[in-house]
Nucleic acid binder design. Sequence first.
DNA 1: CAAATTTCTTGACGACGGAAAAGAATCGTC
DNA 2: GACGATTCTTTTCCGTCGTCAAGAAATTTG
Lengths: 402, 402
Amino acid sequence: MTDSSISAHRETLLAAGPPAAVTMFTALLTRGTMTRGELGARTGFSAGAVTKALRPLIESGHVRELPEQWSPSGAGRPALPLQVDAERAYLVGVKITADEVIGVLTDLRLRVVDRHRVALPTIVEAGHHAHTVDADDALAAIVELVGRLVQDDPGRGDRLAGVGVAVSGDVDARAGLVRFSPLLGWRGISLAERLEAQLGIPTTVENDVRALTVAEQWFGVGLDTSFFALVTVGTGVGCGIVADGALLTGAHGVVGELGHLPVDPAGPECHCGGTGCVEALIGEAALLDRIAEAVDQPVRTIDHARALATESAAVRAIFADVGRVLGLALATVANLLGPEKIVLTGETMVAYDLFADDLTKSFEAQCFGAAQQCSITVRPLQFEHWARGAAAVAIARLVRAA
Amino acid sequence: MTDSSISAHRETLLAAGPPAAVTMFTALLTRGTMTRGELGARTGFSAGAVTKALRPLIESGHVRELPEQWSPSGAGRPALPLQVDAERAYLVGVKITADEVIGVLTDLRLRVVDRHRVALPTIVEAGHHAHTVDADDALAAIVELVGRLVQDDPGRGDRLAGVGVAVSGDVDARAGLVRFSPLLGWRGISLAERLEAQLGIPTTVENDVRALTVAEQWFGVGLDTSFFALVTVGTGVGCGIVADGALLTGAHGVVGELGHLPVDPAGPECHCGGTGCVEALIGEAALLDRIAEAVDQPVRTIDHARALATESAAVRAIFADVGRVLGLALATVANLLGPEKIVLTGETMVAYDLFADDLTKSFEAQCFGAAQQCSITVRPLQFEHWARGAAAVAIARLVRAA
DNA sequence: CAAATTTCTTGACGACGGAAAAGAATCGTC
DNA sequence: GACGATTCTTTTCCGTCGTCAAGAAATTTG
């Protein structure tokens, strides 16, 4: 099943080199075009070190000198702008959901070049209504997905440098192991190992929220701060944390379970066993249920719910409550961690305008002192962003393991 | 006012030296006696590096070789145990409260050698009942305290290597600045600088909870894990976090404000402006108020409250609620951060047995999945421990700045 | 007392990056 | 259109740090 056009001859992608080289390459990768001087200043290395570290990277073609003048500078020898050759390598990022695998092909700078989806055979367990995904089916689908992404254009196969997979649940990224994914019904699946065996390409597996956080760390707000949190609100409510420039992993794999913050002892029971959890109040299922009850008709999507809000004050009140609860959750993150920024994203954010005011009010009321200075960035999230996050993890691994 | 016996001639305390030397010295300091082989294995350096890094430290007397046989080993040249000369330097740790300054003198391994207290003149602001501490009074009291701690024994003055001060509130440790301390009524006090000017000794200032966390990081659970949280419950409810071996500081100075976790929308208003905060439910003031109301008599101390519990079921129920709320708070820390361990401490822990069961139950119910594996260590906290934490900060600074 | 064994030291070596001098490319100016 | 002046880049030399592997040291064992 492995596509022969893949992994024909993959060379050493990044000259491993001294720490300085990795630092500089990373800076150039994430921040784009820069002159040697800027690079040295940003990374804190001397001019000589820049020259030395860069030479092998330029010779191998991973970094290019642009002939064009960069700034319209005045006197003196003009500075040569440098940039990484982002098309030198491609990455595939995959998100596995309960009914399909979604993939994107990106370049080294995480720009999406192509995208595809492959449906998964749905297994409805006898009696139970829970979806479960067969791991072999998922593997086959991913292999097919990678094949398609690569075949769309010749030359991609040779340059495919890594595959990243994002899965919801408890993932041990170091081991490439899905410890437990309730959504997929998986327990102890050595996904990375098995995919690598089939694809012949270095493969990484990461929790989906953390993958999104890595994307943000390398190519988003992480460029401005080394201490931020990313909160997603959709099916679940999760949170990724970057502290001192490093992604928190959690001693036992659990981290950022913001969905199970107990905000109301009189609230509903949560599937986790707790009471009044954020997720049991504003997770997608709970939210749609609450709205369906209010309007006395089935509501299947956030978009539908959003539309109903224009007519129904009751629906608007429910969204207002989403804002209130989310504000408390964000305030908790701000109070407990004191990040510089919070990125708020997830499928539910398409309705952000319906609860923005209540969110802000509740956030500010609950924030303690200077924690309020924490800035909140809202990003709508399309589904393929999850896959893009997985690609970001693959890039991070490629650059660091270099 | 500066005591002349202090800082007569302080030498270079720790040979700055290469990173390896700092690492090894730190390992020896925190973990106690070790042979060269063990030291190399633990720090990951080669045997040769151990010899080279240690030589200057041994020559300067900071590290000693013990003549005694260590293990009853078999054949071969016997390994020489090494240890730091903990009495080579002394540290003073100070905790400033609303009505006194409490100080301890410790050796380099944070063993308390002596202790003292100096009362502060209480200023009751006209009309207001809020205590406020005059910064100059506090400075004078600290200078006096340091003087007394040093005078008790000759030779201490020469070896006093640092002073650490712990203050509740928002502290910028890097700048030695108390940004805002509601308890003391301070705003923007350059405490470290002013103390250094008066004492002539390197001085550090840190938030009290974080200071306690540093003590734990260097000489407590930090020896077994690089990822833990320390939760204090007393007047306030706070939390210090060590992730990847580094103390989190918070982008805006706020971090670990666990006291303002909103756990009950129907709960009392908190002084912070929030609703149903943990601190408004189980902070010392709130707790004593609740108990006083239940027994219809004034209750001033936790010990008193504790005694009342034997007679009154209502009081026991309140302690049970403390357990419930605290369990939720700890579960939140575990869910959000995924630390390997949590240290639970604070003045309220003298009554731990009254709420241990409810705490455990509530913690386990609210914990998500593997977060439950996080182990909880309970430590009763006497007041001088706060001062000892401040000394730990001074040690950390001494060793790292070395 | 030699052999075996384990620990510790030594010295050669290489990787890394800094400092500063030398070189390169451009603009202004005469 | 030479000649500085200026700014960027490379080169050379050097110091620091830590590894490696050989050998010295201090024991127990036979």
